[in-house]
Nucleic acid binder design. Sequence first.
DNA 1: CCTTGAATATCGGTG
DNA 2: CACCGATGTTCAAGG
Lengths: 253, 253
Amino acid sequence: MVNTLVRPSTTDALHFIEEHHVSTPEKTFLIVLGDCLVNYNGRARSLLDWGERVIMIKQDGAVLVHQPVMREPVNWQPTGSRTEFTMKDNHLVLKSRHLHPPEKMKITFREVQLITVTSLRDRANLVIAGMETDVVNQIISDPSIIEEGLRITKREKPVKSGSIDLYGFDKNHVPVIIEVKRSLATISSVHQLRMYVKETKKDNKEAQVRGVLCAPRVPEMVKKLLEEHDLEWREVERNVVLPDDRQKTLREF
Amino acid sequence: MVNTLVRPSTTDALHFIEEHHVSTPEKTFLIVLGDCLVNYNGRARSLLDWGERVIMIKQDGAVLVHQPVMREPVNWQPTGSRTEFTMKDNHLVLKSRHLHPPEKMKITFREVQLITVTSLRDRANLVIAGMETDVVNQIISDPSIIEEGLRITKREKPVKSGSIDLYGFDKNHVPVIIEVKRSLATISSVHQLRMYVKETKKDNKEAQVRGVLCAPRVPEMVKKLLEEHDLEWREVERNVVLPDDRQKTLREF
DNA sequence: CCTTGAATATCGGTG
DNA sequence: CACCGATGTTCAAGG
């Protein structure tokens, strides 16, 4: 079920939207392509001058304004926004409001090139692999990835200043704190790890506590900082494997 | 200039795309609405089962797959990807590749409800206000926002473990480090500030160096942590003002 | 409800 | 090219 109008007048565009979208916005997905101007006021404030863009209003109230380039929408409204349409000075005007946090956006169209209304049926969920939790799981199932004789005893161990990804003991029974980063290790991850080690030493009155930063790549500058603070690092490969029943489809790809 | 095809066969869809998009992809913006399956392999790996979605191919090669809800695309390819179309088992197949980092995505359509090809003309740039740099500028132009007698001497002062937002001296000539956060102050910002103060003390052999965390809101927990480390904070309003010539348009909104 | 941290983060600025 | 930090980050998970 798709309804489309090519190059309507702004008045016809409004009528079309009122007929097909306004009464049941939570069930219809609206796409408008046209020459427009965008105002936004909320957490920040912005103005986007006239230009041709694609606007989508999703079935949960999210509004996206897409320019011809870039992955990110240039303007948007969050999920749960309420959107209304009116005419002003022969322009089609879209006003969208969000309550918490308070945000409003106004789109003024001086020309509409295309309007499409549809109702998307999509019950599928994304199955994804290759995230930090996967690395953590991998280390739990085989701690020798980090080093021989390592024993993991806790995951997500809460401390005063945050939460330790993995906690355990090495072959000499020395406590080991492991901070896992999915991608690049940063200076803040070092700060974090340092904090955890310090707090653990204090809390347990341990003289020695090791801290290991575990990431696919550790930049030189970060390595230096780690060394300065007597911390360690391991560069580990990400494991990018989906659940078994999904593997077939992906192998073919 | 908009070309649209409603409910084409997958074969007709391919012909349409070849005619209007393939030869000049950097000039045409493609929207496909249909029942599809999405595979992705790159930094992570994912599979999205059959469902109705909106796919956009932007003029810079970015590809977005949008489900009926949520602000974020469920799958995407970055700017600069190359996309090809083929037929396989009576399905329209889109394959997109990106080189650095290596990423590929495959979308298989078993039904196409709408195809639109257009060429968006948009030379406008977003004018935006309310970001961290604005707060930093504001403090520079009027340091009394933080406190009377404060004198700012450096902006983005580089130190070993990062970069200090603002550096200066209070009315008693004591060095002051100011860390600015646009939104919520977090525990990591405290770690960061602590680090900066410590390093500055060491580098300058100063007995006293003040550290001030400056954010629109500082949660209780963060305040506690700051107090523990003899650091300070200021809660400041964000300044959400656009350049003068833009104000008129926004005031009306 | 608030808080925390990950993300195929994306994006721009800087060296 | 690598690195770094902001983002109207968005989003899900956990207390």
